[in-house]
């Protein structure tokens, strides 16, 4: 079992903390993981991405080979499209549908959604609203992660444990808010 995931978004949207939760869950299952991040200049409002590879066998490369990524998990729709060269033929794109517009030439939202819908496997949904519904407006990344959990090969309980472990020092309220967001995201995928 091997799953290659690209997590992406814009600096500060929490793409990297989703990566940390999947990694923790994978390590808890006794799996191997490798995760390559981008740091530095890209954090100033630029795009951020992380290559996350989890497997029950040792992993060679830190980078996912092009055309082999199983899941692109994005908190921003245009960013999801940026990494299509990595997506495998049977891969999934799971993304929030709300644009983060900090550039003057941002394309039409409808055109972006139409591009994503051309793909054989995708879930595009309003993760921001769902996050607000569960009273965790900053939890968009957790909602998207919840939706993706169906395709990760990791039980949602394991992800919840990882959330408890990663957010534990921030207190019970934050842990529960993130678990609620995770479950609400999963419910979206289950309904599809």
């Amino acid at each position: 079992m091997k799953i290659d995931i690209i997590l992406c978004g814009v600096g500060g949207m929490g793409a990297l903390s989703s990566a940390a939760i999947i990694s923790k869950a994978a390590l808890d299952m006794g799996w191997y993981m490798k995760q390559a991040e981008t740091h530095g200049m890209s954090q100033r409002g630029g795009d951020v991405q992380s290559h996350l590879r989890i497997s029950d066998k040792p992993i060679a490369s830190d980078l996912i080979p092009e055309g082999e990524c199983d899941i692109i998990l994005s908190v921003e729709p245009m960013e999801a499209l940026r990494y299509l060269p990595f997506l495998s033929k049977d891969g999934w794109v799971i993304t929030n549908e709300n644009p983060f517009i900090n550039i003057p030439n941002y394309p039409e939202k409808e055109a972006i959604i139409a591009e994503i819908n051309k793909l054989p496997h995708s879930i595009v949904f309003d993760a921001d609203t769902i996050a607000k519904e569960v009273h965790n407006p900053k939890g968009t990344n957790m909602v998207v992660l919840g939706a993706a959990s169906k395709y990760l090969g990791i039980d949602i309980e394991k992800l919840e444990d990882a959330v408890r472990s990663n957010f534990g020092r921030k207190g019970e309220a934050i842990v529960n808010a993130n678990i609620d967001a995770l479950r609400a995201g999963r419910a979206v995928a289950d309904k599809m």
Partner: peptide
């Protein structure tokens, strides 16, 4: 033989870093 993914759609705009 290596796999190749899809091209990046032309509408995707670069998002360069900028001052906060």
């Amino acid at each position: 033989e290596v796999k190749e993914g899809l091209p990046v759609p032309s509408l995707v705009a670069p998002r360069p870093p900028k001052l906060c």
